[in-house]
Design a protein around this nucleic acid. Structure first.
Lengths: 340, 340
DNA sequence: AATCAAAAAGTAAACGCTTAATATACGTTT
DNA sequence: AAACGTATATTAAGCGTTTACTTTTTGATT
């Protein structure tokens, strides 16, 4: 069975030096001669020694690990973002614990406890239902929130310019001669609020009624499964088609939602983009698998990933980097494809 | 800053008992009186004490953590599977380190070292380029491979019945009066081999030529980006359309590939399913976002996730559970949607 | 009241590592 | 040849737990 993992002690004995020396050689700190270095390294290689992360972590009071908290790995926007962040962190020498909360606050709390117990050195929190409450952690570690507002300014916030994104989307829909409607899920989030505001402001600026009648929210039951979601969407489309002249324009606040709209439309033989124009948000991988390919607002996940990790890493390492650009919102752009 | 994490020692002092007693209370083992239990628990709650996982791990020589190695989180089949496994493990009290290797053997090796250093208690390896080589680990831990053959029978293999899936797909295509073609990516994998075999055997059984001319593989460059992939696919479709009478039938060995085929077809104004019939594999979330919705072979990810975790957990806990069903391949089924 | 077993609590070592404090060896300079 | 500085190596403590072993307390039985 489980052959005993070789420890630094045995390396020390085998190479005829003390553990301290071995440790110094491994971490290349303190002083030692070239001869011993070679001797020790040889033994290490020969024995396939790997340093025990728990012992090291215990001693150093850090784990070289960061936690990522994400609502749903099956959402292609999140998956994309997580993958990029994880890649960045890997390159920087950190390992990552990915926690899929399934939007369950209980599960989220459980994960936070676990991450804390594991002494993660930092935390990246992506989206989520409400404000991120730092009180949940008892120990202070650097945290960055992506598209989720923290409850204290000690936590770094990084996010796209949702307001501008909504402006772009709305303008696009208006200039396509539609009377746009905004479509969102049941869940509130800070970024949704920005988007709705951008949408409504743009409406007003164009002298269109900016009341709440044109923002449509799915209910919680409706969005439960793909099927309920789609039938709700069909109902919404039906109403829209009777109430106003085609083409109608829908600004869906996420690409997945937009994708569902398209599916619903197909099943009703509504043709896109002639009778229905749809614009999504995210430019998630799925956007390119929609038919027609989805016109959408692109969030720059590369940029977000880079900013999040580089900030986090320097915060962990105690550098209070004063890069001013890091406080600006991440820019957003319209990508024209075939649904408008 | 970082307020000191309270340790078991302080809990002990505050409640006027020894650390050993506190430890006993926390883990509910050994003997202690109800009075002390309450006293200690009160202090623990009051102080927000959380046991230090590294210290515990060091002492116990285990981490309550399992690693998941996955080629690509952006593939909706993998994301789905990982999400389910992770959920299972969370419920069982294990935490999960998800490692996205991006199909890079170097990255994979790096991750394995890291997982080992972190003393993971078990490992789940999903798919991947070639045999999984257990030699990469120097310490023995329970491992389960999903859709990836291990190089030793000490490692548990779990996988769908790919052969049968291919049969079902091929028969479906044949009975839809097409002369089926199999379409695959450049990468070989054990499951692909099974699928090709199932495909060819079914061809033979129906007295159709089962040579290799009807299996089409994308080259590595072709599948690099969505765009190269799609233009390669358009080229393939073009050839197919000239060479034989519509309708043509394509058995794509994954849903993502099938989705790309559909996109390519749309851009060429080939109508599905009248002129082109496509059947995918996996029944990944994306299948329902294709247009038309994708007919495909369903892999039962729930079942796979349950088997993988329940086997792994019992192996970790030293139970050599003799559930015979666990050695059978996971069953697979045809789901009829709209592309055939 | 004395005895004793069972229950409750305590002591201390060990898990594998890093590092401050020390010790030793080795040339140089006087 | 003594003295000293420098480079190199060792000793030992401590990170926060668990647990085998030991000690103390409790309460029932004689």
């Amino acid at each position: 069975m489980a052959q005993k993992q070789v420890s630094i002690r045995e390396i020390a004995e085998l190479s005829g030096v003390s553990v301290a020396t071995v440790s110094r050689v491994i971490n290349n700190n303190g002083r030692f001669s070239e001869t011993t270095r070679q001797k020790v390294m040889a033994v290490i290689r020969e024995q396939g020694y790997e340093t025990n992360a728990m012992a090291k972590g215990l001693r150093m009071r850090k784990s070289n690990t960061v936690g990522i908290v994400v609502p749903d790995l099956n959402n292609s926007f999140f998956a994309d973002l997580v993958e990029k962040i994880e890649q960045q962190l890997f390159e920087t020498g950190y390992s990552t614990i990915i926690c899929d909360t399934a939007r369950d606050p209980y599960k989220e709390a459980g994960y936070l406890k676990m991450l804390e117990a594991k002494l993660v050195d930092g935390l990246i929190v992506i989206s989520g239902l409400k404000e991120f409450d730092s009180q949940q952690l008892s120990r202070h570690v650097p945290i960055v929130c992506i598209d989720r507002k923290p409850n204290t300014n000690k936590i770094k916030y990084i996010g796209s310019d949702h307001y501008k994104g909504a402006q772009l989307a709305t303008e696009k829909l208006i200039s396509a001669k539609t009377n746009p409607v905004l479509l969102a899920g049941s869940r509130d989030s800070p970024s949704l609020i920005d988007r709705i505001k951008g949408y409504q402001d743009t409406l007003s600026k164009n002298e269109l009624p900016a009341d709440n009648t044109s923002v449509i929210r799915l209910t919680e039951e409706e969005e439960q499964t793909p099927d309920t979601r789609r039938s709700a969407l069909r109902e919404i489309l039906r109403k829209l088609m009777t109430k106003s002249q085609p083409p109608i324009g829908i600004f869906a606040v996420s690409d997945t939602l937009a994708a569902d709209v398209l599916i619903a439309a197909h099943s009703m033989f509504i043709s896109v983009p002639s009778d229905l124009k749809v614009i999504g948000f995210d430019d998630a991988p799925i956007a390119r698998y929609c038919y027609p390919e989805l016109t959408t607002i692109r969030q720059n996940t590369d940029e977000i990933a880079v900013r999040a990790t580089s900030y986090l890493v320097s915060a962990i390492q105690g550098k209070t980097e004063q890069n001013s650009s890091i406080n600006k919102l991440v820019d957003v752009s319209l990508v024209n494809r075939s649904t408008v």
